[in-house]
Amino acid sequence: MSALRLTVNGGEHVLDVPVGTSLAQILRDELGLTGTKIACNEGHCGACTVQIDGVPQLSCITLAHAVEGEVTTIEGLREHPLVEAFVRADAVQCGYCTPGQVVSAAALVAANPQPTREEIRHAMAGNICRCGTYPKIEEAILSWQG
């Protein structure tokens, strides 16, 4: 066990957890933030995407003790206009990949508010959706400002 200080969605957390625990596991099991999903747990799918200081990161392969910076999860982005845009465009089927998609998309539009289709495809290619919501994700991001 080792002390861990984390800032998540603006809140400070002090925890005592084994070294080697992933950030995803801390978020889901210790902090109850289950909006961050785990689908592969080895860095291949993007379901667990969170932002660290605004940069998308795969929380399942990020060691919690190595996090420097502020973590933003889907729970911290619930009022983001992208949420409404995803619902409007039907960019959600089973929804299991969707929080990760929104977190990646939020980082994209923060850096580039009017991305082209090509830029969207480039930025979102690490987020797998087995249901195939991709065309609707493109549409949601293209129209995120309403």
Binding site: R28, D29, G32, T34, G35, T36, K37, I38, T73, I74, E75, R78, V83, F86, V87, R88, D90, A91, V92, C94, G95, Y96, T98, P99, V102
Partner: peptide, 21 residues
């Protein structure tokens, strides 16, 4: 019609079996 449960799913509030504790 957009999905009735779209907001829960997109906002990460929907509880899947994997999320139950």
């Amino acid at each position: 019609a957009p999905r009735k449960d779209g907001p829960e799913r997109v906002r990460g509030e929907a509880r899947y079996t994997a999320d139950l504790r």
